[in-house]
Design a protein around this nucleic acid. Structure first.
Length: 564
RNA sequence: CGGGAUGUAGCUCAGCCUGGUAGAGCGCUUGAAUGGGGUUCAAGAGGUCGCUGAUUCGAAUUCAGUCAUCCCGACCA
């Protein structure tokens, strides 16, 4: 490809609204063009990368028996009502009416449509297992799109769905998907961190997320460096270390003026945070939920969501807290009423705690929850952090941040049951198919690769997905330079290598800066000086220095490098 | 949905406080010199200052509303 005939743009300056490296370089290199919040056009440079990622994923899906299909984005509300998700999902699902006034949605995922397809065909256990997948646009009306392609509203996703006759067969295939995912990420140069994750609106029990470990990540990950326990912080478990002082000491009210926060309280009383019981309040369907966790930990709202099976959960207003007999800032379940009390496991086994007295400016010392609290439930409700111990081996946990590049779920029969994707077993009984689903956001993966691999000048693409694998840069416009560039272009393309020739009448500096933004693994500069010795300059994008290569060796060297 | 900020040339921004003929750099067009990390010179093209309304003799500038975009938080298969 000759650059003079291509459709491209590069930006000299960083767009004012971009902060993440992937966003900056995808904009500056002319890979993407914003159209609206979280909605982007793919320009030719970006589309080339997307297509290469798609091909890698397709190869790996086919390897494990996947069969490609293509389902619609525009779907009826009726279909989503069958699974219950038309009602269960909030504003993230974009709803609208067609000209006949029918309620419609833009699909944010395809479990319903895929289950609908399978039930149309499925009769017998002999047809299972089957795994269907597609590359399809999803629309999610995100409350807050951000970070270029990291979190968008419209995006291309590879979504796969498997259907099985038994849990064992799902387990077997789930492992195949897991392994295929590892191969996919490694082929684009990323070693993912795989964590246990929440199943959210998908339902199901087991799920894993494939994360890029990066300080720019939106998700928090809890890792054990010793035994390998890895989980999304949302659901991470940890060993409780109950605080145990004097079990029999009587409640004692102490004045704690201006000590509304745990920080102020522990300083005032000179006690450790883990010896305090912190109350956090939520409004669940109009009723007050009182959650009690150790003062050094936070409540995991996801764990609470799952425990309550809540669709919506909000922080409680002070008026609601007071109506139940508690005083914000000085609260505890002691003497409260009309509230469901959920106590973290650590608190349930602790005693001699400091907690609120439900009176402005006062706390209780020596609180023993089992003795002093009204009836309460015990649950794993606190959020894991770096002060917590591994649930498996007891080692101190570490925390890092990640970008979710993909996920896999064991769905079970949530959709097949509700939508009637059933089959006749060998025993002549009817059973719903057992399902799994597996997703990869293609654009987010492209951005993740840039986050993972770039320098101050642009992306450093792996050769598997670089828009062009070789960029040829003639320095000057003498006929012999141009002719040699064309010769290289023809011969390399004949060898199946993607080549970009910068045939513009531009200064070398301009060409090199642009080449860095396009990140080809190999750059070949053809200059008069080198040509005097029949040599050209060969430079790897990920190395600082270049080497001189004889003109006659260039094509063979490139072939060898890209054959690796 | 809360909090903060920004909308002026293709891009990055100044001008606004204190109202009076629309600015710079880069990019683009033409010409010339140059030619190994965004070179230089000359001549040009390009903007109803996000939109609507109000105040005023006069609004990019003041006021009100509205739309859009970004950042932080909430939310997020």
């Amino acid at each position: 490809m000759k650059l003079s005939k291509y459709f491209y743009v590069t930006l000299r300056e960083t767009p004012s609204d971009a902060t993440m490296p992937s966003h900056i370089f995808l904009m500056r290199g002319g890979y993407i063009k914003p159209v609206s919040t979280g909605i982007y056009s793919m320009m030719p440079m970006g589309f080339r990368v997307i297509q290469k990622i798609v091909n890698i994923i397709r190869e790996e899906m086919n390897k494990i028996g996947g069969i490609e299909v293509d389902l619609p984005v525009v779907q009826t509300a009726e279909l989503w009502s069958e699974s219950g998700r038309y009602q269960a999902i909030g504003e993230e699902l974009l709803r609208f009416k067609d000209r006949n006034n029918h309620n419609m949605v833009l699909a944010m995922t395809h479990e319903e449509a895929m289950t609908d397809l399978v039930r149309y065909v499925l009769n017998s256990y002999k047809q299972l297992p089957v795994m269907l997948y597609q590359f399809k646009t999803k629309y999610r009306d995100e409350a807050r799109a951000r970070g270029g392609l990291i979190r968008v509203r419209e995006f291309l996703m590879k979504d796969a769905y498997s259907f099985h006759t038994s849990q064992e067969d799902l387990d077997r295939h789930y492992q195949e998907e897991y392994d295929a995912y590892l191969r996919i990420y490694r082929r684009v140069g990323i070693e993912p961190v795989v964590v246990q994750s929440d199943t959210g609106i998908m339902g199901g029990k087991v799920a894993h997320e494939f994360m890029l470990d990066t300080p720019n990540g939106e998700d928090y990950l809890i890792l054990c460096k010793k035994c390998g326990y890895q989980a999304n912080r949302e659901i991470a478990k940890f060993q409780r270390v109950p605080f145990k002082g004097d079990e029999n000491a009587a409640l004692e009210k102490v004045a704690t003026p201006n000590s509304e926060s745990i920080d102020e309280l522990t300083k005032f009383l000179n006690v450790p945070a883990e010896s305090t019981a912190k109350c956090v309040f939520f409004d669940f369907e109009g009723k007050l939920i009182t959650v009690v966790v150790p003062g050094n930990l936070d409540v995991s709202e996801i764990k609470l969501h799952n425990l309550l099976k809540a669709k919506e959960l909000y922080p409680a207003e002070d008026s609601l807290i007071k109506a139940c007999g508690m005083v914000p800032g000085f609260a505890s379940p002691i003497n409260s009423h009309d509230t469901r009390i959920i106590v973290d496991e650590a608190i349930a086994d602790s005693f001699d705690l400091v907690t609120g007295a439900n009176e402005e400016g006062f706390h209780f010392k020596h609180c023993n929850p089992k003795r002093d609290f009204p009836k309460f439930e015990v649950a794993d409700i606190a959020e894991a952090s770096e002060v917590c111990k591994c649930p498996c081996c007891g080692e101190l946990l570490t925390e890092t941040r990640g970008i979710e590049m993909g996920n896999i779920f064991k769905l079970g029969t949530k959709f097949s049951e509700s939508m009637g994707a059933k089959f006749l077993t060998a025993e002549k009984t009817t059973a719903p198919a057992i399902m799994g689903c597996y997703g990869i956001g293609v654009g987010r993966l492209m951005a993740s690769v840039v986050e993972n691999s770039h320098d101050d000048f642009g992306p450093i693409w792996p050769k598997s997905i670089a828009p062009f694998q070789v960029e040829i840069v003639p320095i000057g416009k003498e006929a012999e330079l141009v002719e040699l560039a064309e010769k290289f272009e023809k011969e390399l393309e004949a060898a199946g290598i993607d080549v970009l020739v910068d045939d513009r009448d531009e200064r070398p500096g301009v060409k090199f800066k642009d080449a860095d933004l396009w990140g080809s693994p190999v750059r070949i500069a053809i200059g008069k000086k080198g040509l005097a010795n029949s040599e050209v300059e060969w430079k790897f994008r990920n190395e600082k220095d270049f080497s001189m290569v004889k003109v006659e060796d260039v094509v063979a060297k490139a072939k060898a490098y890209f054959a690796e």
